[in-house]
Design a binder for these strands. Structure first.
Lengths: 145, 145
DNA sequence: TATAAATAGGACAAAAATGTCCTTTATTAA
DNA sequence: TTAATAAAGGACATTTTTGTCCTATTTATA
C-alpha cells in the first residue's frame, strides 16, 4: 500500500527476529521466510541490507543466523528500516511527484498531505521493534497471511 | 510516495483539464503533457483510462481534445481518479502486505495505520477537482517541477 | 583439520511498471 | 468529398522491482 514489497518483508522479518531474540533464539533465513511467508532468497538479500545498516546482526556458520540485541530493539524504529530499504522519499517526496514541492511552491495536494505525512512520520519514528515484537509475543498480532 | 507514476500523472492531468475547462478551453494530449511535464504517449494512455471511467470527456477530430463539465468538477473526487488507476488497495490493503489483515487478525501495524489510512481516505473522498483547479487558477499551486 | 552449516554476494530470470511508436477511427472544415 | 487533426488502441521497448541460483566465505564442532 505504501511500502515496497522488499520493505514489507524487511519489517516483518525484523519483527520476527526481534521476537525470537527475546527468547535468546538466533534464526536462519529459511525459518524467517517460512514464518513470515516470504520468498527465501529475496528475503536473504533484504536481511543483508538490514545487517549492513546495523538493524539486525548476522552470524555466519553453524549455529549462526540473525538476531537483534535487546538494546537495539528499543533503538531501532520502523523509520530506520523503511529508510534503509525504501529511502526517505516517503517523508520528503511530493504526493504528485513534483521534484520541488514545498510551502513556497506547493502542488495542489501539498497542504492536504501535510498532516497525513506528519502522522505517518511520527508513527514510524516512534514505533520500536520491541513494541511490535511484544504484540506478537502476546498473540495479539500476526506476521503471516 | 504513495501513488503510482500513472496515478500522479492522471491527477495532474485531470486538474489541468479542469482548470482549462473553467475557461471553456478543450486541451490536447500534447498540451497537457507539456503543462504537467509528463511523457506524452504515456499520458495519452492514462487519459484513455480516465475517459473510460467518465472522469474526463474526450472529443476526437480537429478542435477535439479533453474537457471536464463544470458539473463533473464537483462530482469527481480524487478518490475516483486513484481508484480508476491504482485500484483500491490504498484503502483496503495491509501496510505489511498480509492478505487478510483486519481487526480480528491484525498485523503488528494494523492499529497504527487505522488513523493514517482513515485521514487519507477522507481527504481523497472529500477533495474535488474543482477545489484543486481553483487553487491553480489563483496561482497558489503548481503542476510542474 | 575436515566437514557441514550458515550468511554474503554476484549473476541471472521473471514480472510489473513505465514509456514509445505506429496504425486506426472519428470528426471538422475547406 | 477530401485533407488534416485529434483521440483510441495495439504492439513493442525500456526500466525497475521482485525473485532465483550458484559460488564464496566464515565458523562451529566432530
Amino acid at each position: 500500500m505504501m511500502f515496497s514489497k522488499a520493505c514489507e518483508y524487511g519489517i516483518r522479518a525484523a519483527v520476527y527476529i526481534a521476537l525470537q531474540s527475546l527468547d535468546g533464539r538466533r534464526v536462519s533465513v529459511s525459518e524467517i521466510a517460512e514464518e513470515i511467508d516470504s520468498p527465501i532468497a529475496f528475503t536473504a538479500k533484504i536481511l543483508q541490507q538490514l545487517n549492513r545498516n546495523n538493524i539486525v546482526h548476522s552470524v555466519k556458520g553453524p549455529t549462526g543466523g540473525f538476531e537483534i540485541d535487546r538494546e537495539n530493539m528499543d533503538t531501532v524504529k520502523l523509520s530506520m528500516i523503511v529508510k534503509a530499504i525504501d529511502g526517505d522519499k516517503i517523508y520528503t517526496g511530493c504526493g504528485l511527484g513534483l521534484k520541488e514541492c514545498n510551502a513556497q511552491k506547493p502542488c495542489p495536494l501539498h497542504d492536504k498531505f501535510v498532516d497525513i505525512r506528519s502522522n505517518l512520520r511520527t508513527m514510524l519514528i516512534s514505533t520500536s521493534l520491541f513494541e511490535l515484537a511484544t504484540g506478537l509475543e502476546v498473540g495479539l498480532t500476526y506476521l503471516k497471511r
